[in-house]
Simulated scan of single mutants.
Amino acid sequence: MYSGPLRAVVTALLAVGVAAAATGCSSSDSSAAADGKLGVVAAFYPLQYVTQQVGGDHVSVTNLVEPGTEPHDVELSPKQVAQVTDADAVVYLREFQPAVDDAVDSGAKNKSLDVAGVAPLSDGYVPLEEGELHEDEKGKDPHVWLDPTRLAGIADAVAKKLGDLDPDHAAEYTANAKALNTKLGTLDAEYKSGLASCKQKTIVVSHNAFGYLAARYGLTQVPITGLTPEEEPSAARLAEVAKYAKENGVTVIFFETLVSPKIAQALASEVGAKAEVLDPIEGIAKESNDDYFSVMRTNLTTLRGALSCQ
Rank of each mutant, 00 (worst) to 15 (best):
G55K: 05
V40P: 10
A108Q: 02
S106Y: 04
K79I: 00
L93N: 15
L47K: 09
Q80F: 00
R94K: 14
L47W: 09
A89N: 02
V59Q: 08
K109N: 00
P46Q: 11
K79L: 11
E66Q: 14
T69W: 09
P67W: 07
V59K: 03
L64C: 02
V81E: 08
P78T: 00
E95I: 13
V59H: 06
P78Q: 00
G55M: 05
A89C: 04
Y92D: 01
E66Y: 09
S122I: 12
G39M: 11
F96D: 09
Q48N: 14
A87H: 05
R94D: 01
N110L: 00
K79D: 11
L47G: 05
V50D: 09
L76Q: 01
D88Q: 14
P120V: 00
D73I: 02
P46N: 11
V41R: 08
V100Y: 03
V91P: 03
L93S: 15
S77A: 09
Q97T: 14
Q97P: 08
T69E: 13
L76E: 06
V90N: 00
N110V: 01
G68W: 15
V91M: 01
H72P: 11
G68R: 11
S77Y: 05
L113W: 05
D88M: 12
V115Y: 04
N110P: 07
G107K: 11
D114L: 03
P78W: 00
A89H: 01
F44H: 10
D57H: 03
Q83C: 12
E75R: 05
V91L: 04
N63H: 13
V40R: 08
G107Q: 09
D57L: 03
D101H: 10
T51Y: 09
G39F: 12
L64D: 01
L93E: 15
T51S: 08
Q97N: 12
D88I: 08
F96K: 10
H72C: 06
P46H: 14
T69F: 04
D114V: 02
P46V: 13
P78R: 00
V100R: 02
Q80T: 00
V61P: 08
V115S: 03
N110I: 04
T85K: 14
A89Q: 05
V104M: 01
V65R: 06
N63V: 12
V84I: 09
V41W: 05
Q48R: 15
K37M: 13
L121F: 13
G107R: 07
D73T: 07
A42R: 09
Y45F: 15
V104L: 04
A99W: 02
P46E: 11
V54L: 01
G68L: 14
N63L: 12
A82T: 07
A87E: 08
P120T: 07
H58E: 13
K79Q: 13
L121K: 15
L113E: 02
D73R: 02
A87P: 06
V50E: 01
L113G: 05
V100A: 01
Q52T: 14
A87D: 04
T62I: 10
S60L: 01
V118H: 13
Q97W: 02
A82S: 12
F96W: 12
V118D: 10
E95G: 12
